[in-house]
Design a protein around this nucleic acid. Structure first.
Length: 180
DNA sequence: GCGACAG
DNA sequence: ATCTTGTCGC
């Protein structure tokens, strides 16, 4: 499984990181970090147009072929049901999950405090994902399907990737390379 | 018209 | 996302 993230060392420079971790031990198998100029500005709902080009360039340099991608940002929990995880999944023709740290679309009812507790993310009568408590004492993660995966499986895979922390190990590893 | 608004 | 110190809680 793979994790992708993008950092901006300079306002016009995107640093994309892709990591491939082996399941179930979640040990690092491969990593790629690239930098390239960005032209598209950040716009709520259009994140893919700003971050995906760099991510795709990094993925292209991978020697391993991941069977699942965890992205920073939404999948179907998006105003047009097509967040960055959907874009990535379609373009790479691979399963993808959207993992947002904050909410974009959808409302949900209060969920349990225990790790693993979850509540459907709803837009009118349509479920667009899940608010998922990956760690006790933390705000929930907003998980939604990106491509070739169900919402239920997406939530399960995210939990499998979360160990000691709120964020999936894939995301933490990629974020460390792209930013901190 | 007002508020919300991934990274 | 990025700029930044101390602080509260498990």
């Amino acid at each position: 499984m793979a994790g992708v993230d993008v950092g901006f060392p300079r306002p016009d420079c995107a640093r994309a990181a892709v990591v491939v971790l082996r399941y179930p031990d979640l040990t690092l198998c491969e990593q790629v970090v690239i930098e390239q100029q960005v032209d598209f500005p950040y716009r709520t709902g259009l994140l893919a147009y700003r971050e995906l080009p760099a991510v795709l360039a990094a993925v292209a340099r991978l020697s391993t072929q991941p069977n699942l991608f965890l992205c920073d940002g939404q999948g179907t929990a998006h105003p047009r049901r097509f967040g960055i995880a959907c874009h990535l999944g379609v373009l790479l023709d691979c399963a993808a999950i959207g993992v947002g740290k904050t909410r974009l679309s959808g409302r949900y009812q209060q969920l349990g405090e225990q790790r693993g507790a979850r509540a459907p993310l709803m837009v009118a009568d349509e479920q667009v994902g899940y608010a998922l408590r990956s760690r006790q004492g933390c705000n929930p993660l907003y998980v939604s399907a990106g491509h070739r995966i169900s919402q239920e499986s997406a939530a399960e895979w995210v939990m499998r990737c979360c160990r000691q922390f709120k964020l999936p190990e894939t995301t933490r590893c990629a974020h460390r390379l792209a930013s901190g």
